Simulated assay, not measured.
Amino acid sequence: MPELIAPAVRLHSAWLDAHAEWGPGLHEDGFGLGPSDEVDSPAGFAAWVARLADHHCMYRWIVESDRVLGGIALRHGSSDYVRWAGHIGFGIRPSARQRGLATWAMGRMLDEARVLGLERLLAVCAVDNVASAKTIERCGGVFECIRDTDFGPARRYWIEL
């Protein structure tokens, strides 16, 4: 049974395994991985995990039997980044997709958003990411529009809490 947990240093090798499955780059939304983060060494990984705990964002990893299946982030506020990327972002490693994990995790993070007193969330996905669009819609997302971004066109949805 999967669970949502705060990022944990003990899962370093499991996280590296998930990261390798995605391939090179920083594209795993929901993990908060930045271009300056060095996650290969134990010390670098520990520093990154500590940074995630201090951020104005709630990060959770989707874990099953100490295997990292994905990540999800609940971003607070209305910064330029939130207006571009949305309040919520998620990613599921390729081998764990089509199990409903993203919908399950998003439902739990929407509960966290309610606890924080948020009333509505912006969710954004690439226009060609049909799986993410369906996940957002299953979780109550109402399509607003498609906007051009630096990374291509993106679908924008609002979720009323």
Rank of each mutant, 00 (worst) to 15 (best):
F45Q: 11
C145G: 01
A43Y: 08
A53Q: 14
L122Q: 12
G71L: 07
A53T: 12
P42A: 02
P35G: 04
S79E: 04
H27F: 06
A123K: 06
A123T: 03
L26I: 01
H56M: 11
S41Q: 07
D111P: 02
H87Q: 11
A53D: 13
H56A: 15
G141P: 02
V49R: 13
A73L: 04
R99D: 00
G89L: 03
A73C: 10
L33D: 10
I88T: 13
A113Q: 07
S36Y: 04
G89F: 09
V115W: 08
D54C: 14
D29F: 13
L33I: 11
D111W: 01
F143H: 14
D128K: 14
R99Q: 14
I88M: 15
R138F: 03
D54H: 10
G32Q: 04
F143L: 15
L121A: 11
L118P: 00
C145N: 14
G89T: 03
P94D: 05
E38F: 04
V130W: 06
A43Q: 15
R93C: 03
E64N: 11
G100W: 02
D37G: 09
A43P: 01
G77K: 08
V142F: 09
D66E: 15
R108G: 13
V49A: 13
L121P: 04
D29R: 08
L116V: 02
P42W: 05
F45R: 04
L74Q: 08
F143S: 01
S132A: 13
S41A: 06
R138N: 11
A53W: 04
R97A: 03
G32C: 10
D128S: 12
E112M: 06
R120N: 15
A113G: 10
V124D: 00
I62T: 06
E119N: 09
A102W: 05
D111I: 10
R67A: 08
G117V: 07
F31E: 03
I92E: 00
G30M: 06
R108M: 12
R67S: 13
D66H: 06
D66Y: 07
W104M: 03
D80E: 14
R114P: 01
W84P: 00
V124I: 02
W84V: 12
V39N: 09
A113P: 02
A123F: 03
L69R: 12
P42K: 07
M58E: 15
V49L: 12
W104S: 08
W104A: 04
S65D: 14
V63W: 03
G140S: 08
I88L: 15
F45E: 10
D54Q: 12
F45P: 05
G77W: 05
H56K: 12
I146S: 11
W48I: 08
G117I: 11
F90V: 02
G141Q: 03
S41I: 06
S79Q: 05
D29H: 08
G77C: 10
R114C: 07
L110W: 02
G117P: 00
V82G: 02
R75S: 11
R60I: 09
